[in-house]
Design a protein around this nucleic acid. Structure first.
Lengths: 183, 183
DNA sequence: AAGCTAACCTAGGAGTCACTAGGTTAGCGC
DNA sequence: GCGCTAACCTAGTGACTCCTAGGTTAGCTT
């Protein structure tokens, strides 16, 4: 058919298209959840049709996993980079929170994607749990090394630290979502 | 066809069947999310076929809304009942958290359903936001009335309280889920 | 300018979903 | 024991989903 002015196709490079798909997918997964985000809409927002998505990712689950892994890697990096040092713990925590906010501000959907209770599919839940656990394993030692961490957690064994992680998770999620919704 | 021993139908009262459907739906919405929970599986776990669900609820969304409203009403009641009194705030907060844990222990899926980021469908998100906001309006004043609430929140206007609510929400969700997963 | 690669498309398969129309029967009241 | 109500069913519709096979063409390379 004739390529009328409405439907003329803009052909761009592979990496550029992939970036567009990732951005659209991140936003849609964040706002609609795994099942609620359709490949068709991800493709349309990337200026493309569904089959093109499969030129870049094996499946919908593969696309989700890759986004999740990237965001968790960023989160790990933020904390690892800002939590270290010899300052008083209070200042290091404040600094880390600031850095986390800056990251969320730059990636408005990361917070929602990261801490969403993604238990839609058993398969999706498994992916999410695996990635989240590996991130927890990386961050928890930062707190365990703190003097006074045990009494703050209110327990001697590891269970208190588990609870501390859960609380931190909740705080980070809540603040990230609030941050994303407010100007 | 012959009603063989495998498929013989047990016919029970209307209220009893409705309770079974609500219990199955609550568990499935909690573990799989709104879209992930299918009417077919809700029906099967209630010992019934899908059309029967529609004898009790207008639609899937109506079923979800009714469950949500019940759980939020319970949460409001728990906090309203345990947070009052003249004890030091610290004790009242501890008491309220204990009561919340007791509730979550008795209703293992309430915590997940209540604070799940239910933004799957615009329609679902609207229902969830409406119910959650009405609950927030009921609980926030409990904190606003506290002496020292403003400085704790770190702000003079209402914005600090909004943040406090978001944090509390995140913590409650995190702890509720953790509580449900641990013995 | 011609060719070739790869970016992109149309068309459709196969499965799942919420929901409905209309018939069947179990078990209570009499 | 018998009818009648309501609890429950079978069978299907239409819409939506992920994903694929195979063809088309834009635009870089030479």
């Amino acid at each position: 058919m004739a390529t009328d002015t409405q439907t003329r196709r803009r052909r761009i490079g592979r990496a550029a298209r992939r970036s567009l798909i990732e951005a659209a997918a991140s936003e849609l997964f964040a706002t609609r959840g795994y099942r609620g985000a359709s490949i068709e809409e991800i493709a349309r927002r990337s200026g493309v049709t569904p089959p093109v998505v499969y030129d870049h990712f094996d499946s919908k689950l593969d696309l989700y996993r890759q986004l999740l892994e990237r965001h968790f890697a960023d989160l790990r990096e933020v904390w690892r980079h800002h939590f270290g040092g010899d300052d008083p713990p209070r200042e290091r925590v404040a600094r880390s929170f600031d850095a986390w906010f800056a990251y969320v501000e730059e990636h408005p959907f990361a917070g929602r994607v990261l801490f969403r209770d993604a238990s839609a599919d058993p398969e999706v839940a498994a992916v999410h749990a695996a990635v989240a656990n590996s991130s927890r394993e990386a961050i928890l030692p930062l707190f365990a090394a703190e003097p006074g961490a045990a009494e703050l957690a209110g327990s001697i064994d590891g269970e208190g630290l588990e609870m501390a992680w859960v609380v931190l998770r909740g705080v980070l999620q809540g603040l990230a979502i609030w941050w994303a919704d407010n100007p």
